[in-house]
Nucleic acid binder design. Structure first.
Lengths: 205, 205, 205, 205
DNA sequence: GATGAATGAGGGTTCATTCAT
DNA sequence: TATGAATGAACCCTCATTCAT
């Protein structure tokens, strides 16, 4: 059975991968509704019928793109547990920005905001706010408490937009500068958490 | 000529208004591609052909919705030029939040982000970042300089997201609390500007 | 009553005329289906509702254009009854070509052929073959007898196409040359009538 | 690959053929603008979406109908190179008329004249004047020289109209009679060429 | 008589999905 | 597994016609 994988199954896997890759690029370049299944299939170099075959629906493909992206992004997160929290946050964003700089097609996918109609909102937010959530965890902030969650969402947007603009700028500033800028924004956000919910214990950086 | 306005022209104007109103609600509730011209017309209670008649195309209608929204939002901005800058910023956001709280359908229109494909990006951003730009002007910050522009965009997103969440929360915190939270975020943003472009003269609040 | 004509009625007549004029140009430039009532009205500088008002339907307007054209063309036909038949034919075509050269918008109206769907075929043919019919009458040929009618239609087409090309040519040959060419074609056509229906008494030119 | 042709590909080809067939009939019966894509599809017994699938657009389908028609008509042209020119001309028209008599739906397609708006003018003329051009070549007449081209167009029209009428007549005269009639018309046309451009060497029949 | 707002049927086209091969 | 032909619902838009003013 294992051996068979080198035959049909392997090629099926390959097709699936090609579709995901193509879909990532397409969904990044245009809003969901403007990407056709045929576009994706053509980019992937396979028959459009295979989208149904492998992902059921167009939405299934989109969802899988989000999940895969999420997986890949989180894989790059590495922080030194010994270091100070502030430093860990910086490590996190350095990794994040580095990854995005190398895969700038992701910007298009992550930034524009959810199409409310796509029943993928949760998955979408999971990807989009992945890094900010990690920061929140690092800082020991609650993810669910209203005030904290509110600022988290807000900060995640701010970070995304900043990253997006940074990627689009011709002479990109140094990563470290952007990291410091993010820390500035984060500092503001932490104050905001305190203002909004004094009951939360907010660390400083 | 003036007299005619009370007749047919007034009714045309009325129809136009009904279409804009309906469109605002529809485009807020679903992404552009999912709103059909017929939906809008039905909501407005008129024939769908009138969209062409009054706005040329679906996009023309959408554009007009954005413009009208922009117009209305900016109309509410009133600040006391005698007051301190920080106070003026607070006045601005208090007005902004008050207006949005009374027209929470706008949130859906403004937040999701542009469909890159709609050739209305500029107009869209004009509305979405209207308030943040006003703040920038108030603080004497440049709108065009890269670093400043970048943080402006980022801060605008943060403020939008915060506002959006606030509107969605059941027991909405007091407006004044949110204003202070925004000031916290703005403070962080101002630091960010300094970090990114030390050449800019950034005031404190 | 006569005096009133200088008031509303005269202006109504004027509007009618403007619509006919505009329609002539429009229907010449594009096939019937591509000319919109609004196009015509805009060209005429009046409200589009007036087409219904004055002509009932779009087709009514078209029909009226054909009739009016027919009327005008036939008005120019003058032949000297004393002259030889051949000379009269030449006079006829000289008049015809002169008129068309001065109203070359007619070419577009007359040449393309009838849209079979327009219930105006008869009227259309009446205009298109007006001159050729006149020739047939001049030569004492029957209009109804199958063979004669067939060749008449054929010759009318040939003459139309020739005229059309002539009008489109930059350095237009002299009218008299074209007249002789038409006589050549006519000569051929007369032979054809003899071949097709030996019972007909066909004169020579 | 070759084997696949007997399966799905053959059925695709079949569908294409059915659409072309249906389109030929529809476009013959009514002007282009009055034939709907759905009409064609319904006549062909397939879904209307297939028009896009196989021909891209309505115009693509129309164009293909013209091309296919042209192809088929020209296939029937066979002349004996040993025979006298006049005889070859007769052979040509005999073949042409025979084919049309067996496919009288073509008359409706070819005769009405081009819709100037359809960007298919060239292709259209190619079909409509196919036979006349062949005659011109046979007689060694130039296709491009203005005078010759003018008369060619004119003669082609005459021949078409004659053919069209002939097909519509109940008791169709013998083909050979029509051929002689065409030769009569052609004789006139040849004189016309001489009159128009004495520099051209025009043979006799 | 004149206006142009309003109507709504109907057009061409797109495209997710299905399914026989 | 893979193909791409086939389906048909749904879209945006056009436009002849009506009619209140």
């Amino acid at each position: 059975m294992e051996l068979l994988r080198s035959g049909r199954q392997a090629s099926a896997e390959e097709t699936r991968r090609k579709l995901l890759e193509a879909a990532l690029h397409q969904f990044s370049a245009r809003p969901y509704a403007e990407v056709t299944v045929s576009d994706v299939a053509r980019t992937a170099g396979v028959a459009h019928g295979l989208v149904s075959h492998h992902f059921g629906h167009k939405q299934g493909l989109y969802l899988e793109v989000l999940r895969e992206t999420n997986r890949r992004i989180r894989e790059t997160y590495r922080t030194d547990p010994e270091a100070a929290v502030g430093e860990q946050v910086r490590q996190l964003y350095r990794a994040h920005l580095t990854y995005l700089a190398e895969h700038d097609e992701l910007a298009g996918l992550l930034l524009p905001g959810t199409d409310a109609s796509l029943q993928v909102g949760e998955e979408f937010d999971a990807v989009r706010t992945a890094c900010a959530r990690e920061v929140w965890l690092l800082l020991g902030l609650p993810l669910e408490r209203p005030g904290s969650a509110m600022v988290l969402a807000s900060f995640a947007r701010a970070a995304d937009e900043l990253t997006f603009r940074w990627l689009g700028v011709c002479g990109r500033p140094e990563i470290d500068v952007i990291v410091e800028v993010l820390v500035d924004l984060l500092t503001g956000a932490l104050h905001a958490v305190r203002t909004l919910d004094p009951g939360i214990d907010v660390p400083s950086l």
